[in-house]
């Protein structure tokens, strides 16, 4: 694989909080246009890994490179410039409570583009429609349900058409139809814009329908125990635990 195709590269990463190491020995890369899932038991450090990758916390050691540029050794300005290329959705939506939904989605546009009010309003309408929230632009975040907040957060993350998207459990707390719709949206983002998408998820259904590749994290070894195509891992993984993890739901479906 040529270097230009590697969008994100993680090298010998060790992460944690304070003195505590949550994950270590992390090595993986994500190619451009790939849908990459991070799986693992609750509390194994999936969200922690995501927060470190997007530069919110400094790692204990190791390096994180975006298209070859390190976010770990960057100055704050360089780091912000790299971060501007991301779209991130948080587990709880993380909308700004003092602004309406439309203002939330418009914020990155007013910050970084010279677009006129009318153009911005048009983009906001389009993005809200994409996540099935048309008509809710004038609502305050406190007037939305949890799932709606999450979708509004997604619309905000998409505002600048980022080519790298991070989702932390996008479908947790959504009904099956909405979450299937979300999977279709993720696939269409990749197909239309060739976006690279990194998803933390528990939902095996969505892993099998969207993921090109998964990594599985384990609390015991604090490291990656499997890396590959989910179907491949289900059939051929040498680890019993990995096969069980991926199969449990498969058994239920039969």
């Amino acid at each position: 694989m040529s270097v230009e195709h590697v969008k994100l590269e993680v090298k010998d990463l060790v992460i944690g909080y304070g003195d505590r190491v949550v994950l270590q020995n992390l090595n993986f890369h994500v190619s451009r246009g790939e849908i990459f899932c991070i799986m693992g038991g609750s509390g194994c450090g999936k969200s922690t890994l995501l927060k470190h990758i997007i530069g919110l916390y400094p790692p204990k050691s190791g390096d994180i490179l975006f298209s070859g540029r390190s976010i770990v050794n960057a100055t704050p300005e360089e780091r912000r410039a790299i971060m501007r290329g991301f779209g991130v959705t948080y587990q709880g939506g993380a909308l700004f409570g003092s602004m309406t939904v439309a203002e939330n989605v418009a914020l990155p546009l007013t910050e970084y583009t010279g677009k006129s009010k009318a153009e911005i309003a048009e983009i906001v309408r389009e993005k809200l429609k994409l996540v099935d929230l048309d008509g809710f632009g004038s609502y305050m975040p406190s007037e939305l349900s949890g799932g709606m907040c999450k979708r509004a957060g997604l619309a905000r993350a998409l505002a600048l058409n980022p080519d790298l998207l991070f989702f932390d459990e996008p479908s947790a707390g959504l009904d099956p139809i909405t979450s299937a719709g979300l999977d279709r949206l993720i696939l269409s983002l990749r197909d239309q814009f060739n976006s690279t998408i990194i998803v933390v998820t528990h939902e095996l259904d969505s892993v099998f329908s969207i993921a090109d590749r998964v990594i599985m994290l384990d609390k015991g070894t604090k490291s990656i125990v499997a890396d590959g195509d989910p179907r491949d891992l289900l059939k051929n993984s040498t680890s019993e635990w990995v096969r069980c993890f991926l199969d449990r739901d498969g058994l239920k479906r039969q």
Binding site: K51, L56, R80, M83, Y90, G97, P108, E111
Partner: peptide, 16 residues
């Protein structure tokens, strides 16, 4: 805002 991860959201929007 910190509890709601709004501060993190600001950071990832590249806003100080």
């Amino acid at each position: 805002m910190k509890v709601n991860e709004e501060i993190s959201a600001l950071e990832t929007l590249g806003i100080s």
